[in-house]
Amino acid sequence: MEELRRVIREMLAGGKVDLVIAYAKGSLPLRSTPVFIRNAEDAECAVFDATCENNLSTYLPRYAGKRLAVVAKGCDARSVQEYLRERQLDPGNVVVIGVPCQGVIGRDRLSRRLSGKEITGAEMDGDTVRVRGDGWEETLQLFEVLHPSCETCEVKEAPGAAIKLGEAAAAQVAEPFALVDDMERLTPDERWAYFTAQFEKCIRCYACRQACPGCYCKECFVDRSAPRWVGGTDDPSDTAIFHIIRALHLAGRCVDCGACVKACPMGVDLRALNKKLERDVRELFGFTAGLEHEGKQVLSTFRADDPNDFIK
């Protein structure tokens, strides 16, 4: 933590950057909150631990022309790489501060583990999470309550980081595409029932889209009013269209940071769909998003010798 603060302080004091986007302690137990640091003396508020669930790269395109630094976990840094590949950021203007990530707490999973009991206080000590509430106290290990995206994370080190603070720890604890395998074992009807149940929870607050670094269209297709592509009612087909098209727009771009799932106030989880697309892109094109920023975006390329006839 001290090293993180020192790095931020020095960057701002030395005039290397105008703004550092970091995490500060949040207002609820086990929550952190994004903080925008412009003065070296404010670096003291920066923290990093397993509560730092937000993908801060989402904020970067808002500050075009400014010299930026961002505190990034492996997944967040992959988002930065995709922004650079898609020419949304000027590579000379972004410094990635890679932080050692052991995975972040999945709040839904923690809540489930505690049968929904309200947490009124908590402390983190390395891999140990101590939580308490009204008349109870429990000590858990981080790996028991990791966010599902962190369980399957393949890239703990922040790609493209100019500064690396410590070694990223903890290898993945689950097969990256186990979720997809599970889905594919279901019948189409069972799969559709699963996805329908997810869509039905959606209230169209668009927290997923707003939290997603890949969703930066100036005008989202659901917001277009002339022509109107999709209705705003609670009709299941409208909600399904929003989620399915959003997932397709992220094919080959999604880094599985889990920002969408973490942001959703209703517990909608469509990672199975994103992971399926991620695996397809990897198998068909040998591409994994966010590892570096050179080269074209995988679904925007065309080869005259493409083996598929339909594409010629």
Binding site: P34, C205, Q210
Partner: peptide
């Protein structure tokens, strides 16, 4: 407003 993502989770709930 700076950290606000611009979703409507707050308003809808």
């Amino acid at each position: 407003h700076e950290k606000c993502l611009g979703c409507a989770a707050c308003a809808y709930l």
